Amino acid sequence: MSRRVLITAGASGIGLAMAQAFVMAGDEVWVTDVDAAALEALPETIIARHCDAADEARVAEIMAEVGTLDVLCANAGIAGPTAMVEDVDLTDWRTCVSVNLEGAFLAVKHGLGPMKAVKRGSVIFTSSTAGIFGYPNRAPYAAAKWAIIGLMKTVAMEAGPFGVRANAICPGAVEGERMEGVLAREAAAKGMTRDQVYEGYAASTSMRSFVEARDIADMAVFLASDAARRVSGQVIAVDGHTENPDPKL
């Protein structure tokens, strides 16, 4: 049976991989994104809507348009600044926390009601291994991703009696444009080369590698499926087993 799926920040990166995976599963997929050009490039098989994840009025408008949801992927996020905590600008802190945490909050605030009404649904939060470990030079991002875990567990407890599950995926270092930006900024902050920082991230995993967006998408499809019908309130890392987030600091 086809499900209705909404993915925030679904026009690129992990969100796009999720959208493609759910389309392949035969689902009706809606994505929101702030990047108008990326939305324009999406195939017709994906329903696209322009939206800033932290704009409550717009989020509410789109959720009302979508109507009943089976799967909600609260995926919107930005990397935020790379700096020691005492050097983080307050505006940069607020922007990072707003997109990562408030974006997730607004998605569930306005998307959860229809799920509870029909007594079914799966909410999947994109956190990060930064939501499991402390990350040097990434204080706003880590703080927001830790907070998403608390939000997820609360949603799981509140929505569980209505047949709605909630879980969080914690990606490790994901190959792609966003991670390349992180690598460049960390290299500059630490006086290292991009390759040295990359090798440090890879060396901190037992599998000695980055993950790909499709790895995260595969987990999302599983968590939304009947095969995971009793999986809720869980923090699931897809990271090749991170042991130490920054062994070379």
Rank of each mutant, 00 (worst) to 15 (best):
R3Y: 10
R3W: 06
V5W: 02
T8C: 03
A9S: 12
A11C: 10
G13D: 12
A17P: 07
A17L: 08
M18G: 08
A21I: 05
F22D: 01
V23N: 06
G26F: 06
V29N: 02
T32Y: 00
D33C: 09
V34L: 14
D35G: 02
D35Q: 11
L39S: 00
L39K: 05
P43Q: 00
I47D: 03
H50Q: 13
A53H: 00
A53S: 11
D55K: 00
E56H: 08
A60N: 06
M63C: 00
E65F: 01
C73D: 01
A74Y: 02
A79I: 01
T82S: 06
T82V: 15
M84D: 14
E86S: 08
V88I: 10
D89L: 11
T91F: 13
D92E: 15
V99C: 09
E102C: 08
F105Q: 06
F105P: 05
G111V: 06
G111P: 01
P114A: 08
K119N: 13
G121H: 06
S122W: 05
S122P: 09
T126H: 02
S128F: 08
S128G: 12
T129G: 07
G134T: 03
Y141D: 07
A143F: 03
K145F: 04
W146F: 14
I148T: 11
M152K: 08
A156V: 04
F162V: 07
F162G: 00
G163C: 11
R165H: 11
A166R: 04
A168H: 06
G176D: 11
R178M: 15
G181F: 02
A184Y: 10
E186K: 13
A189H: 13
R194Y: 15
D195N: 11
Y198T: 12
G200Y: 00
A203E: 11
F210R: 09
V211F: 05
R214W: 12
D215A: 12
I216Q: 04
F222Y: 15
A224M: 08
R230H: 14
G233H: 04
A237K: 08
T242M: 14
D246K: 03
